[in-house]
């Protein structure tokens, strides 16, 4: 504060120099952080890649020749896509309600929406089984008498996946929606646009990128869900076994090469997802 009285504010050029001031502590912390991340993340992850390609492309080729593995991967993709679509529609609607309207219980709802991030996936699975299980669940027996089996079947896998990834779209969209404000929407309405037109032409384009981030993150999370799916799916070979369950099964059956190969595929998809998001974010920040 005294600085500004004694001397006029400096031009912004010295910012870089100030940052460049480095003591031994700087180097020590840098070394510590790099070593920590190398030992905890970089090295272990790179080992999975080398294990997968130990025998060239053989491991990946055998994977695609096994009909059960192909089925598991297809099931994972289907469940992830359906769950992502559901969460996107739900997430955008809830975000609009949270930011644009007032209703009783709003604060409780917005806190509860974060709950899936803090709950054990096994608890998620148990909760769904207790309600939708065919034997003794709250709604399960009734639904099954209508011919709709949820637990130990694909709908259960979709529910579990949707549950664990629930807040991801909302967390991306809510802050952006608040920032965009409502002036443009009001202008559109005063020019005679109805609610639907305002949403499609004004609101949606404004939150487009937030939705894209949310969708990519949801997809990555959904493809990799393991614990909750394990409880609700029953892990039936060729029916309800997903790709992540196949990793466990292969490893426990001493097919380490197969386990590493599926793990590599899953990891590549999820790492690709985060790289896409970080590139998009960096580009958005640059504008």
């Amino acid at each position: 504060m005294i600085d500004t009285i004694v001397a006029p504010p400096e031009p912004s050029a010295p910012t870089r120099q100030r940052r460049a001031r480095k003591g031994p502590v700087t180097y020590l912390v840098r070394l510590l952080v790099v070593a920590y991340l190398f030992l905890l993340v970089a090295w272990p992850v790179s080992l999975v890649v080398t294990h997968t390609f130990e025998n060239g492309l053989d491991a990946l080729r055998t994977l695609f020749e096994d009909p059960d593995i192909v089925h598991a991967m297809r099931l994972t993709v289907v469940a992830a896509v359906v769950a992502t679509v559901i969460n996107t529609v739900f997430g955008v609607s809830v975000s609009l309600l949270l930011v644009r309207t007032e209703f009783p219980g709003k604060r409780v709802l917005s806190a509860l929406l974060d709950l899936p991030l803090a709950i054990s996936p096994i608890v998620v699975g148990l909760a769904l089984v207790l309600v939708y299980g065919g034997r003794g669940g709250w709604f399960g027996p009734t639904l099954e008498s209508w011919g709709l089996q949820i637990i130990f079947s694909t709908p259960g896998i979709i529910l579990a996946t949707a549950f664990v990834a629930l807040p991801l779209v909302i967390r991306e969209v809510v802050p952006v929606l608040g920032e965009v404000g409502i002036e443009q929407e009001q202008a559109a309405q005063s020019l005679g646009a109805n609610g639907w037109q305002t949403f499609w032409r004004i609101t949606l384009p404004g939150i487009r990128w937030a939705i894209v981030y949310g969708v990519v993150l949801t997809l990555a999370r959904s493809l990799g869900e393991f614990g909750a799916v394990k409880v609700v799916s029953g892990n039936i070979l060729g029916e309800t076994r997903t790709a992540t369950l196949a990793v466990e099964e292969s490893y426990l059956n001493f097919n380490q090469e197969g386990a590493y190969a599926i793990a590599f595929l899953l990891a590549s998809v999820s790492v690709a997802c985060i790289i896409v998001v970080s590139i998009l974010r960096a580009r958005a920040a640059g504008h």
């Binding site: 493809l223 992540t244 490893y251 386990a259 793990a263 899953l266 985060i274």
Partner: peptide, 23 residues
């Protein structure tokens, strides 16, 4: 390093276990 931080979030948990097991 910035990208490395996100990897534990992105990796399926079963793969995370396998990753740690390899080292």
């Amino acid at each position: 390093l910035d990208v490395l931080i996100d990897i534990p979030f992105a990796l399926p948990t079963i793969v995370a276990g396998l990753v740690l097991l390899s080292l």
